[in-house]
């Protein structure tokens, strides 16, 4: 057992438990907080994978923005669904079965993958510079980058339009 392995196992355990809590706890606010924990675990795993940039981005986007948005949405809609109501629908058993099937299938595939047991490459750490240039390079990824930005603008405008309070004339 090396140090990275210990860190990985600890983080993985925390992440998985937090994820399980997210889908099972009846109080949605708590689910949101557990979600933050799970996402933070993912960020730690990103650091373990030696990509600090994505880890920080993960924190900035998922925890600071998405998770907080979700919690606010929970707070805004809390009045209609009391925490004592069933939070799991009647088909939860079938859902669990389906999820297990998916997981089993994925694990089967993973177990048969030829490279599954290999370690990380030695020459890691592609610089932030290279990533930045690749994102705006015509021969690189400028198209997905621009498409993502257009998508974000569209989503911004769209969500404002959808959530806007209807005016009196509506």
């Amino acid at each position: 057992m090396t140090v990275p392995q210990i860190i990985f196992l600890a983080t993985a355990a925390v992440t998985l438990i937090a994820a399980l809590m997210v889908v099972t706890v009846p109080r949605l606010v708590h689910a949101g907080l557990w979600l933050i924990l799970a996402l933070g675990g993912i960020a730690v795993l990103f650091i373990l994978l030696e990509n600090g940039f994505l880890a920080v981005v993960q924190v900035a986007i998922y925890i600071d923005a998405i998770a907080i948005l979700i919690i606010i949405a929970v707070m805004l809609t809390r009045a209609v669904m009391s925490d004592t109501d069933p939070q799991i629908n009647r088909m939860w058993l079938a859902s669990a079965l389906a999820s297990l099937i998916i997981m089993a299938g994925l694990l089967v595939i993973v177990s048969q993958a030829p490279d599954a047991s290999r370690g990380p490459l030695v020459d890691a750490e592609v610089g932030l510079d290279a990533l930045g240039r690749a994102l705006v390079d015509v021969d690189g990824f400028i198209l997905p980058f621009e498409v993502a930005s257009v998508l974000l603008v569209a989503a911004l405008v769209g969500s404002i339009m959808v959530a806007m309070t209807p005016t009196r004339g509506d």
Binding site: G52, F53, V56, V57, A60, I63, D64, A67
Partner: peptide, 17 residues
């Protein structure tokens, strides 16, 4: 770290939480 400012922004917003 080479993303220090990004880190500042990310961690700084934890207080909101």
């Amino acid at each position: 770290i080479n993303v220090g400012l990004l880190y500042i922004i990310a961690i700084g917003a934890i207080g909101t939480l």
